[in-house]
Design a binder for these strands. Sequence first.
DNA 1: ACCTGAACACCGTTCAAGT
DNA 2: ACCTGAACACCGTTCAAGT
Lengths: 199, 199
Amino acid sequence: VEPRTPAAARRSTRSDARRNYDRLVAAAGEAFAEHGSQASLDDIARRAGVGPGTLYRHFPAREDLIAAALQDRVEALCEQARGLRDIESPVAALGIWLRALIEHSTTYRGLAASLIARQLATQADATASSHAALRAAGMALVSRAQQAGQIRADIDATAILRLVNAIAWASEQSPDGPDYRERHLQIVLDGLRAGPAGP
Amino acid sequence: VEPRTPAAARRSTRSDARRNYDRLVAAAGEAFAEHGSQASLDDIARRAGVGPGTLYRHFPAREDLIAAALQDRVEALCEQARGLRDIESPVAALGIWLRALIEHSTTYRGLAASLIARQLATQADATASSHAALRAAGMALVSRAQQAGQIRADIDATAILRLVNAIAWASEQSPDGPDYRERHLQIVLDGLRAGPAGP
DNA sequence: ACCTGAACACCGTTCAAGT
DNA sequence: ACCTGAACACCGTTCAAGT
């Protein structure tokens, strides 16, 4: 078996494989939007008109399927991060991007817990995934703000991304979630600005 | 059927019912400690030596079983909150208690997501549960710090508890979780102190 | 090389039959 | 009043048989 990664399967020469891949990604996008990132894989295969084995062949883990369904959005976020390098204040740029990241993490219900948590905010194994670029983009923005002395330097970028992702997770817990995301982010940004000693 | 709530079943007069209740709680505590709050309910019933129907009779939802297994710890946390009313600085008292809350939320893997999130940090339906007292204790400590002008007042206590619980959740995401809990809490506390306008 | 779908293991939940 | 355990529905995952 050659194509172990979704990327390889996507580049397959066989038209039926390529077609199944696309159908699965489209079906997954619908199912995740309806039922959250824990949507039934059987149901996704059924929607796509393929057997469950075909789904597993293309996407060995649920995370791979989620990542594929999110690919366009992830690339857009990376692009936005590149554009924000030109902004005057590093901490302002960081705030804008973290806000967009929270929105991304709440694209599907359960997403913050499913995918982002592991691939965005841990040191390990995020290397091969499409979210590696997202993680790198976030870390660059954090580093820039830290080197400018605008946010505290006694915490690493990974942990900051994890905390911000936790805000996205928390916003799923309350019926009026979106209203609090902004305030939570504001509190964390203020806390990052305050420095280790406090105000 | 009379005893719908765990509390009612606990007070049952029949000795076999009472014994099964106790066995289930003990088995649940072990299983949750081993496999997290998503441990198999079938396995818990097996450990307790009862049929799955008996488990459901005593604990209609997984949350009821978790709450029962945590009852002693919850009461201890409430007791600690009462003691902290005597401390000089309201914000210092709040910090101490929130630290203990995070520790509580990480008693079992997945606990922050399972139980606390809904029963501690949402406006709705937490009334009847044993966690209602926990929620009330936390809100009192927050209010006291707000009224003393030590933390910002532009966010309600429920949302603050949700954010702090999110820290507990986040600490499960990294292998070196405990190390970052303290720093995350410090950032949030600094952000709460900073006030709406920033430093 | 890829697809299919039956098969397996596991789990949550219900309920008729017991005592 | 409570317990039991079989039964059902559903799901993730694997794999032998196909093309």
